[in-house]
Amino acid sequence: MSTPVSIGISSCLLGERVRYDGGHKHDHYLSDTLGRFCRFVPVCPEVGCGLPTPREAMRLEGDPAAPRLVTRKSRIDLTAQMQAFCRQKVVELEREDLCGFIFKKGSPSSGLFRVKVYNAGMPPRVGRGLFAAAVVEHFPLLPVEEEGRLHDMALRENFIERVFAYRRWQDLLRQERKIGHLVEFHSAHKLQLMAHSPELYREAGKLVAHGTEMEPTALFARYLELFMKALALPATVKKNTNVLQHIKGYFRKVLAAEERLGLQEFIDAYHNGLIPLVVPITMIRHYVRKYDQHYLMQQVYLSPTPPELMLRNHV
């Protein structure tokens, strides 16, 4: 990356003792592994809006579409105080050049999915923390995730891949918004988009092909919508296999028979769940260098994130 990969994060996940009980929820993968490749921007909405540590626990109550933030015992409604902080903070975050945000699971301020909303009876898990909701509304295309879901390797891979893709897009916007720059960006991400959504890849391709017919700001905004929507869809084994077969076609005139057979065996083994994606990708990258395949050298799909993150090593 030519510029830092900045990720917003709930402060407690970095070990800061800001939780209601004075504790933290330090996630060492985030701080020690992912943290080697990004700059974290920590936020604790409760402390940020002026509440002490430790403090009385809070919960969401009322309408899940517009919940209230209320202290559990003293029944103090803190909704307006928290919302005022949220409005100010999302504007401040515009200056941080964020590429993603990681929220604390279950938090009435920062929970992204399935937060309990209390009324009479068993509280349904249908809410979203007030700060998380404000961030999603203000940055609708920003990659966001909860730390708990990042323990799932497929979800972790998808999130981090989107974060680095968003960084590359932000770098593109540092240049003048010319159609030629967008063509180059789209071309470099062709295989990555195909692995996530062949349909949205084709739609984005048509948009770029007719890009001269649109005003640049509108063109780039629409492309980003399609780009991030595509990457949010999972890159399945079937779609990855199709991309690997597509890549193999670029070598049909240069690979020896034994090399073609070996590559196909690795692709089949990946397709059948016997080896991780990194194995055929590593062989392909070797052939890209060996046979000087310039087009494939530019493909983000072959190296979308730092290899040290081990994202393609799961079966």
Rank of each mutant, 00 (worst) to 15 (best):
1 M>I: 14
2 S>Y: 12
6 S>Q: 09
8 G>R: 08
24 H>I: 06
26 H>S: 10
28 H>P: 09
31 S>K: 05
35 G>T: 07
35 G>A: 08
37 F>P: 01
43 V>D: 10
44 C>T: 10
49 C>M: 04
55 R>F: 11
56 E>Y: 13
57 A>D: 00
58 M>T: 00
62 G>E: 00
63 D>R: 12
69 L>P: 01
75 R>G: 10
84 A>I: 00
88 Q>C: 11
99 C>W: 07
101 F>P: 06
101 F>C: 07
101 F>Q: 06
109 S>T: 03
109 S>F: 00
109 S>V: 02
117 V>P: 00
117 V>W: 05
122 M>Y: 14
126 V>E: 15
130 L>R: 02
131 F>V: 04
135 V>P: 05
138 H>K: 06
149 R>T: 12
149 R>S: 04
154 A>D: 12
158 N>P: 10
161 E>R: 12
162 R>L: 03
163 V>G: 02
166 Y>F: 15
173 L>Y: 01
173 L>Q: 09
174 R>E: 15
177 R>H: 12
182 L>Q: 05
182 L>E: 02
183 V>W: 07
186 H>I: 09
191 L>V: 02
195 A>K: 00
196 H>A: 03
197 S>E: 03
198 P>Y: 14
207 L>W: 05
208 V>M: 01
208 V>W: 07
210 H>W: 13
211 G>S: 02
213 E>V: 09
217 T>I: 13
225 E>N: 10
227 F>G: 00
231 L>F: 05
234 P>R: 00
244 L>F: 09
245 Q>M: 15
246 H>N: 11
250 Y>G: 09
257 A>N: 11
261 L>D: 11
277 L>R: 03
280 P>Y: 10
281 I>R: 02
286 H>Y: 14
287 Y>D: 03
290 K>S: 00
291 Y>A: 11
297 M>L: 12
297 M>T: 14
297 M>V: 13
299 Q>E: 04
302 L>G: 06
303 S>R: 06
306 P>S: 05
307 P>A: 02
311 L>Y: 04
313 N>I: 11
